[in-house]
């Protein structure tokens, strides 16, 4: 017995100078490892910037935040630009209460 597929979706748009990853739905214990797995190639290979578009994100918890921290560390380690854009208000709040809005490269819409 399993519930319906988690309400989340990930798309990768690979452009010449950057990759835009759009995450929609819920980013939690279940889906955060998926995000890391499916962006592993982009994180490892480069070159170019990585942009995470959260405009369609409905929920994020500490698992999701941890995944973004790891992505930020890997991008910083390889000296490539990394940006998290357009978190909706409820999602932005999770960054604020954890103080991660001061640490991660967040940009409003």
């Amino acid at each position: 017995m399993h519930p319906d597929e988690p309400d989340w979706q990930l798309t990768l748009d690979q452009q010449p100078d950057r990759t835009v990853v759009t995450v929609t739905g819920d980013l939690d214990l279940e889906t955060a490892p998926e995000l890391l797995a499916r962006t592993d190639g982009v994180l490892a290979a480069g070159p170019g910037a990585l942009v995470i578009d959260l405009s369609g994100l409905a929920f994020i918890d500490s698992s999701g935040l941890s995944a973004l921290i790891r992505m930020n560390q890997r991008m910083a380690g390889s000296g490539r630009p990394f940006e998290i854009i357009s978190p909706p208000r409820t999602v932005a709040k999770a960054f604020e209460i954890t103080g991660l809005d001061q640490v991660l490269p967040l940009r409003a819409a």
Binding site: M1, H2, P3, P6, D26, D28, E30, F59
Partner: peptide, 12 residues
């Protein structure tokens, strides 16, 4: 619910 991550959404 079953103790599995897939059910967190149900509880939320």
């Amino acid at each position: 619910v079953p103790a599995a991550g897939a059910y967190l959404g149900v509880l939320r």
